[in-house]
Amino acid sequence: MEEAVFVSDTHSCCDVDHSQHEQFVEESDRWDKLGMTLSGLCAIHCLLTPFLVLSVPVLGEAFEQPWVHIVMALFVVPVGLYAFYSGFLHHKKKGLTALGVAGLAMVCAGLLAPVSGIDLFGHDILTIVGSLCLVVAHVLNRRACLCHRH
């Protein structure tokens, strides 16, 4: 026999106004998916650039320019900040939000680290680890924004 679940505008799962929860979940989902895509592209960029430098030097050198990293960060950082802030207001999970902020900090720190050229060290490792932290944090943020009592 199935249990009846009482649904109201106030739930103990979070502090969100549940009369608008479906809209919140859709918006949050959109921002986290965008964040996962952008962060994944950052990681792929950092992993592929050394190979592009070796195989197609002109293309590789273009991808290695500092402006490419700045442009990526200009998209990744605001999307991440918005997704993690709005998610935190919903789920209140400090560790999850800290993982996202740490990923953002590593991506930003990667901009300041000296460019290492073909080697996969320095800013490359920092940016790759930061991007992977962001992907994981966005996935966890999406899951935490879904209240299973609705």
Results as ranks from 00 to 15, higher is better:
84 F>P: 01
118 I>F: 03
117 G>L: 04
52 L>I: 03
26 E>D: 13
36 M>R: 15
34 L>N: 03
112 L>N: 07
13 C>G: 09
57 P>A: 06
81 L>I: 13
72 M>P: 00
102 A>F: 11
134 L>M: 15
9 D>C: 05
87 G>Y: 04
109 A>M: 10
44 I>W: 12
132 L>G: 15
106 M>L: 15
135 V>W: 05
123 H>M: 12
98 A>S: 15
143 R>D: 10
118 I>D: 04
144 A>G: 03
27 E>P: 00
37 T>E: 08
87 G>W: 03
45 H>P: 00
100 G>S: 14
73 A>S: 12
84 F>Q: 11
21 H>Q: 15
14 C>T: 11
40 G>Q: 10
68 V>I: 15
126 L>H: 02
78 P>S: 04
74 L>A: 14
124 D>G: 04
91 H>A: 05
77 V>I: 14
91 H>T: 07
8 S>P: 08
88 F>V: 06
100 G>K: 13
141 N>C: 11
31 W>T: 09
116 S>A: 11
146 L>P: 01
36 M>F: 06
131 S>L: 03
2 E>A: 06
134 L>I: 13
75 F>R: 00
139 V>M: 11
45 H>K: 10
23 Q>K: 14
11 H>I: 11
124 D>A: 09
139 V>S: 08
5 V>R: 14
15 D>I: 04
136 V>G: 08
135 V>C: 09
12 S>H: 08
76 V>M: 01
46 C>P: 00
35 G>C: 06
59 L>T: 12
66 P>K: 11
79 V>Y: 05
11 H>M: 11
28 S>A: 10
42 C>P: 01
16 V>K: 05
134 L>T: 13
22 E>I: 10
145 C>L: 01
116 S>D: 05
43 A>T: 14
131 S>G: 14
105 A>E: 02
85 Y>E: 11
97 T>I: 00
49 T>G: 02
23 Q>C: 03
11 H>K: 09
64 E>S: 14
94 K>Y: 11
121 F>I: 11
16 V>P: 00
141 N>L: 03
132 L>T: 09
114 P>A: 11
71 V>F: 12
85 Y>C: 07
86 S>A: 07
70 I>P: 01
118 I>T: 12
69 H>C: 12
97 T>D: 00
4 A>G: 12
131 S>K: 01
90 H>N: 13
79 V>C: 08
17 D>N: 15
117 G>T: 06
41 L>H: 00
129 V>E: 05
111 L>S: 02
14 C>R: 10
